[in-house]
Simulated scan of single mutants.
Amino acid sequence: MKILRRKADLRAVTRSWRSAGETIGVVPTMGALHAGHLSLVEAACARADRVIVTLFVNPRQFNSPEDLAKYPRTEESDAEKLAPFAVDVLYIPEPEEIYPEGFATTVSVAGVSEGLCGAARPGHFDGVATVVTKLLLQSDADFAFFGEKDYQQLQVVRRLAVDLDIPVEIVGCPTVREEDGLAMSSRNQRLGPKGRAAAPAMRAALEEAAHALVGGASAEGALDIARQALTAAGYEQIDYLELRADPGLLPVSTLDGPARLFAAAWMDGVRLIDNLPVAAA
């Protein structure tokens, strides 16, 4: 596995792969890799001839300088975790490779970015869309792999790839969970012991709400019970708990087609998110 830090070096490598007729898969990450990320890497290795993993902590998608400062930087251990996989390149660009002096362009995706994390974190998805666009173009990938845990992000990326005519297939991969049901996230390591023990209540609350909806309960009633469950478990603040159409992510009040439940709430000062598909009976 080569470690590259300049886009010119990355493009030289991808040009040679293209000349050989090989397909390219990319897994964009911000590092602090865990089993969820590695499942994306495994999917990429199974699908593409060549695989690039990117590691870039993108400042433009953080709403808080404090949150950005706290985000773990674990480049050495990340490289070690990738060693067992058939990864060809670990691309760790310097900030100026992504945002050179004079950079003045922002990619903004309407519709699917609105509400949910888009409302709770203003500007977040502009930062995500901009950096992902850059990474897709720099990697020249045929396939790009994203986890369904960040389902709204996945839909934003799919939309920008279509709208900007980027010739890449966006592949969504299932959420990887801890044994107790908590969705894997780099943020989980910031939870204290009590918070970590209580955090799986988010998944349980979503499952209970999904069961109620399929059984004929109203969205308002099912979501109210889920809110009570999160509060009782010790979640300090609920940013949102909503039922949205899938994949358009428009708000819905009744379960009359494919939909997803979405939740974001704070535990131990850490913002956790999750989602769960719900299908009408």
Rank of each mutant, 00 (worst) to 15 (best):
T175W: 08
A212T: 02
E178N: 08
R177A: 10
L191A: 06
A183E: 06
A198N: 03
A199R: 00
E220D: 15
A209L: 03
A205C: 03
L182M: 14
A210S: 15
L182V: 09
A219R: 04
E208Q: 15
N188F: 05
S218Y: 11
A209Q: 08
G192P: 09
S218M: 06
G181T: 12
A217W: 10
T175G: 10
G215T: 05
P200F: 09
R203S: 12
S185N: 11
G216Q: 14
D180K: 14
K194T: 11
N188A: 11
A204I: 00
S185W: 07
S186P: 12
R187P: 02
L191S: 04
G221I: 12
R196G: 12
R203A: 08
G192H: 01
A197P: 03
G221F: 03
H211T: 14
K194P: 01
L206F: 04
A210W: 00
T175R: 10
A198Y: 01
G192A: 09
A217H: 05
A217F: 06
G216D: 07
Q189N: 12
T175E: 06
L182W: 08
V214H: 12
E220V: 08
L206P: 02
R203L: 02
P200V: 09
E208V: 15
Q189A: 15
G221K: 13
E179V: 14
E207M: 05
L213A: 01
A209N: 09
A199G: 12
G221N: 12
G221L: 12
K194I: 01
A217E: 15
M202L: 15
L182E: 05
G215P: 09
R190G: 13
G215S: 10
N188E: 11
M184Y: 01
E208R: 15
M184G: 01
L182P: 00
L213E: 01
A217V: 06
E179R: 15
A204N: 06
P193V: 03
A197Q: 15
R187F: 04
A201E: 00
E207Q: 14
A198Q: 04
G195I: 02
G181L: 10
L191D: 05
A199S: 15
E178I: 07
G192T: 07
A209V: 03
K194D: 13
M184A: 03
E220G: 07
E208L: 14
G192C: 11
K194N: 03
L191G: 12
G216T: 12
L191K: 04
R196H: 06
P200I: 06
A217D: 12
G216H: 13
M184E: 05
P193T: 03
E220K: 11
S218F: 06
A209R: 04
A210K: 07
S185L: 08
G216V: 10
E207Y: 00
G195T: 06
E208H: 14
P200K: 09
G181P: 01
